[in-house]
Computed example of a mutant assay.
Amino acid sequence: MSRFGDWLLMLTAAGVMVWWLIRWFDRWLHEPPGAKLRRLAQAGGVEPDEAVSLLQEHGYEVLSGKHRVPLGVVVDEGPVQPTRLYFDYLASKDDKYYLVKLERARQPMDWTASGLRERLLVYALLFPDCEGLIVANPKDKLLRTVRFQLEDGDE
């Protein structure tokens, strides 16, 4: 009789695992756009500083701050090399989300199209639900919004 009990226990455990996987996949499949950003907004606190004040003066609500996105890089089937991507704030205005990067003196922004692409495109690709990226310069009290769009390939 113990063999029947073992099989019953194994089938029950397998059934629960299959049910859990189907439920997880269904939840992932029907996740609304922007859900990743809403989770980020709930994750971090905001410490008031001059950058937060600047964003609020321009009508943005700062939702969270100082985010680190862990990434792994694999080269030629080698080991995974960990790295991180940082952005300073997540803000919203008119029900649209924006990632905020602070312009720092030791890493000035190259305001050419290729410079912006090299520096900021990765954020737009990681968070496609964002309306754009805000580059804030608290020292000069300046905000700039950067958006990327696909162009026709007729060159």
Rank of each mutant, 00 (worst) to 15 (best):
P138R: 03
V73A: 07
G44L: 06
D76P: 00
P108M: 01
L55A: 03
A105D: 13
D94W: 04
E103K: 10
R117H: 11
V16Q: 02
R106L: 14
G132Q: 03
D88K: 06
R39T: 07
L9W: 14
C130T: 14
D95A: 10
L121F: 15
Y89E: 08
L142H: 01
Q107V: 02
V75K: 04
D129N: 05
Q81S: 01
V80D: 08
G44K: 10
F4H: 13
C130M: 07
W111E: 09
C130K: 02
Q56S: 13
L37K: 04
D76R: 00
S114T: 09
F148S: 04
L9S: 15
K139Y: 00
A113V: 04
W19G: 01
V46G: 07
K139R: 02
V52R: 06
E50S: 03
H67M: 04
V18L: 15
P48L: 08
R104S: 13
L121G: 08
K66M: 02
Q107L: 08
D110S: 03
R3C: 08
G132E: 02
Y89D: 10
R27V: 12
H67Q: 10
P138M: 02
R68D: 12
P79K: 15
Y98L: 03
L126Q: 10
L99M: 10
A13T: 12
L21T: 12
L133D: 01
A35G: 00
W7L: 15
P108A: 00
A124H: 14
V52C: 07
F87Y: 11
L37R: 05
A91D: 04
V69G: 05
E131D: 15
E50T: 01
F127W: 03
D129G: 09
K96Q: 14
D94Y: 06
F25I: 14
V46L: 07
L71K: 09
L63H: 07
I22A: 14
M1H: 09
H67F: 12
A105Q: 11
F87V: 07
L85I: 11
G72K: 04
V122K: 05
E155S: 10
A13G: 13
D152V: 07
W24M: 10
K96N: 14
F4E: 15
E50N: 01
I22K: 13
P108R: 00
G65C: 08
C130W: 01
M109V: 11
E103H: 05
P48M: 08
L54Q: 02
M10W: 12
G153H: 13
V146N: 06
K141A: 12
V80G: 02
D76K: 02
S114F: 09
A113N: 11
L21C: 14
A91Q: 04
Q149F: 15
L85K: 09
H58V: 06
